[in-house]
Design a protein around this nucleic acid. Structure first.
Length: 666
DNA sequence: TGGCCTCGAGTTCA
DNA sequence: CTCGAGGCCA
């Protein structure tokens, strides 16, 4: 039977264990115990220390928060200045940099480059004396930063004590940052506490580091990654950057994964590959790559300019954000009459395109942003396609408030807002703007798929009063089309042919195309699979509601449509025009290999469109959805996958690439 | 009633 | 793609 542990031994054991779990979590990213178990170890250690205060060590994990008294961010002079890097934005910039490097090295000495991701966080310098953390400072102006020691001690990713063979004095520099999921968790908490959420992980990390109370910092799961050093006193100073990064890991400091590139061509291709393949999978924000000459003797030879080292450069990806000025606010009218405010901004280049108009969603959003015409705003087009206003950065001088419209911008009818709803709506059922959108929707690909009936054609047909509802599409003559001077002979024939073909579309598409409120693609599919059009014309709201996924709101909407004179008339005319409205055939292959599985597609696929992929899944008995949840079986990520991939990773949902998906198919 | 999980609706630029 | 909101289940 083992002897009972002495408190001293147990404290040492617990401290070591907690340190090891921190290392596993933050350095190796391979935790082996749950948060609860971790908390239990910590509690046991705290209890023991409370009972035996004489045994508390300065580097005890419990001292992370209790140890330091807020130093109030006193100014700190760095051992060596923390310089910024020169930026390169394009291939030409990086090639010019490479040329300069090679010109300044002795002939025949070609540099080998190390390339690391440039994490979007904040720089911080940690000083270790004889292996113990003594000070942490922010970058500040490069010469002098702020003392954030007390808060740095509260960060579990920062070891209080380095591993074996630490230099006598080390000032290591790196980036403090947050993962996307930790950032979101913090924002959820902030919102719950009734506070403003942080705009992005970077701001959140900065705010967390500059907390008055280190206990708050401790809860924020900040990370640290070493990328350089200012001072290395003592034996064994590394001789290359690669060696430095490796030594950091051995000492217990996380350091960036670096890629070696033999020349500038390799750097350029890695820049593209990294963005394409690596970046989307990273759990934290990266705004570029840092390219460094690996060999320290070469670095020394290259030296510094006044502002930055000649041996390193930041190869940035195009900014996803830009600032611009709000010139005016327009109102657009949707198919259902919803009025959406859209900000017209001074055109600004952002993430590859020039943006001149930005949706504001609704008036609550405007209030939340505190937005007025004339303001300078931060615009974002991160990952997704559609730009949005992140925040107001500067109040315009002669600005004016943005008032909701009282009349529809298109038909001047009165505007209403339902109690408890966010949106303002135009209630005029024959509003031309709504009609245009309805006709476009009817002709759209997932509905009746009439190509040639796009925005331009619909605008004219509605303006000339040739089309006053979707049934009129089937009454158009070639003569009328030619009159529009939008169509030449051949094009008019093509359109009429397309319209004729659309008559054979199945009932689900017709139902979806009608644009009944709350009836989208999925709901239309469910209803069309259960009832014929004649049954629908006779059904009560209760009967609709008996169908799966149909609640009172959707049921009422369906019943309202099918019992209204205009709805019944529309159906009647469509039928007389020769629309088949046949029940869709759900062909499920024998054995249904994908039965019970649900798929979400994201990004661009090589072999087919996302819609086609969804069709395949459905034909094999699987389900295709648009949102990732814990119930999703697989997320199939194509090229340039975005937030859904991140969601899948954070929920632990299986992710397939396109090839792996193909293998699942028979 | 609250907390998922879905769906519907609107939107940008080239 | 993101938001708001409807439907379902505990």
């Amino acid at each position: 039977m083992p002897a009972k542990k002495t408190p001293k031994a147990e404290i040492a054991e617990l401290s070591a264990a907690i340190g090891e779990h921190d290392r596993r979590y933050y350095l190796l990213d391979e935790p082996i115990i749950s948060d609860t178990e971790y908390d239990r170890l910590m509690k046991r250690l705290k209890d023991l220390e409370a009972a035996h205060p004489e045994l508390i060590k300065a580097e005890s994990p419990t001292r992370r928060v209790a140890g330091g008294v807020g130093s109030d961010f006193a100014p700190v002079k760095h051992g060596a200045p923390m310089l910024s890097l020169e930026n390169a934005y394009e291939e030409d910039d990086i090639r010019a940099w490479d040329e300069r490097v090679r010109k300044n090295l002795p002939p025949g000495q070609s540099p080998s480059y190390l390339v690391e991701p440039k994490i979007d966080g904040l720089s911080c310098a940690l000083t270790y004396v004889d292996g113990s953390l003594t000070r942490a400072a922010t970058r500040g102006d490069g010469d002098t930063g702020e003392d954030v020691s007390a808060n740095a001690r509260a960060i579990r990713a920062i070891p209080l004590r380095l591993g074996e063979n630490a230099p006598q004095r080390l000032e290591v520099r790196g980036e403090i940052y947050l993962t996307f999921s930790d950032f979101e968790a913090i924002n959820t908490q902030e919102r719950r506490a009734g506070r403003e959420p942080f705009v992005n992980p970077r701001n959140c990390a900065a705010g967390s580091l500059r907390q008055k109370n280190p206990a708050v910092t401790a809860q924020r799961r900040l990370r640290f990654t070493a990328h350089s050093y200012g001072v290395w006193d003592g034996a064994d100073e590394p001789r290359s950057h690669a060696e430095f990064l490796e030594r950091c890991r051995a000492l217990g400091l996380a350091s960036s994964p670096a890629k070696r590139c033999v020349d500038v061509n390799a750097v350029v291709s890695w820049y593209a590959d990294f963005k394409e393949r690596e970046m989307p999978r990273l759990p934290y924000a990266v705004d570029g790559l840092v390219v460094k000459v690996d060999d320290f003797s070469q670095q020394k030879r290259l030296g510094f300019t006044a502002k930055s080292p000649r041996w390193a450069v930041a190869f940035k990806y195009p900014a996803q954000q830009a600032t611009s000025t709000v010139l005016s606010v327009a109102f657009s009218v949707g198919r259902t009459g919803t009025i959406t405010p859209v900000a017209k901004v001074e055109p600004v280049f952002c993430a590859g395109v020039t943006i001149s108009s930005v949706t504001l969603h609704n008036f609550e959003e405007i209030a939340r942003l505190g937005l007025r015409v004339g303001d300078r705003v931060l615009i974002e087009r991160a990952g997704e396609v559609i730009p949005k206003v992140v925040k107001v950065v500067e109040r315009g001088k002669a600005g004016s408030d943005i008032a909701p419209p009282t009349r529809c911008p298109d038909c001047s009818a009165a505007v209403s807002k339902d109690e408890g709803f966010v949106a303002f709506r135009c209630d005029n059922i024959s509003c031309p703007a709504q009609l245009r959108r309805t006709v476009e929707h009817f002709a759209s690909r997932p509905a009746m798929d009439i190509s040639g009936l796009g925005e331009a054609a619909v605008d004219q047909l509605v303006a000339k009063k040739i089309v006053a509802n979707v049934a009129d599409i089937y009454a158009m003559t070639k003569h009328q089309l030619l009159d529009l001077d939008l169509f030449a002979d051949k094009k008019a024939d093509n359109l009429l042919e397309q319209i004729n073909e659309s008559k054979s579309k199945t009932l689900d598409r017709v139902l979806f195309g009608l644009g009944i409120r709350h009836v989208g693609e999925k709901t239309a599919e469910v209803i069309a699979g259960l009832f014929s059009i004649d049954e629908m014309l006779r059904m009560s709201a209760e009967e609709f509601q008996a169908a799966p996924d149909i609640g009172p709101v959707v049921a009422k909407s369906l019943h309202d449509f099918f019992s209204s004179p205009s709805g019944r008339d529309l159906i009647d005319r469509l039928r007389k025009s020769g629309l088949a409205m046949a029940k869709p055939k759900r062909l499920v292959a024998a054995g249904a290999p994908l039965a019970g599985l649900s798929f979400v597609f994201t990004g661009e696929l090589k072999s087919c469109t996302r819609q086609e992929a969804e069709e395949k899944v459905k034909a094999l008995g699987g389900k295709a959805s648009g949102t990732v949840s814990s119930k999703t079986s697989y997320v199939v990520a194509g090229h340039a996958a975005g937030s859904k991939l991140k969601k899948a990773l954070s929920l632990g949902v299986k992710v397939l690439n396109e090839d792996q998906f193909q293998e699942l198919l028979p």
